[in-house]
Amino acid sequence: MTTFIATIEHVVKGPVWGCQDCGQCVLHSTGMTCPMNCPKTLRNGPCGGVRENGHCEVKPEMKCVWLKAYDRTQDWPLPSSWKDEYNHLRPPVDNRLKGTSSWKNFFTKRDRWTPTGWKNSTDESVAQGVDH
């Protein structure tokens, strides 16, 4: 059943969004642009290597994934709650989820699991700082 759902998801999201089956989909927060198509698989915005014409440092023929994401977040009629998430700090990918269904992981909340140390590092705890 799990494989069946993953297959359906792959068939739907592959051709439309270039889904890479990371199993922890963030499309809604990136202007419906899959960040796993960035050659550096960056989840938190463009790197400093974007070319003058807005194309990718690694693949000069391709527009930067994050420029696309930025433009679409501004221009597309997406829910404002999705647009607000654009600047959220997305955690490092859980590599164990590769190839699994992000739909299933969404409903089981598995895709929002992060390691304890990461979870404890909230904006507040970081801002508070630690002085040794």
Binding site: P39, K40, L42, N44, P91, N95, S121
Partner: peptide, 12 residues
């Protein structure tokens, strides 16, 4: 290439 984390993640 590795890129297991990205710049902002590494800061955190």
């Amino acid at each position: 290439r590795v890129f297991d984390t990205d710049g902002p993640q590494l800061v955190r």
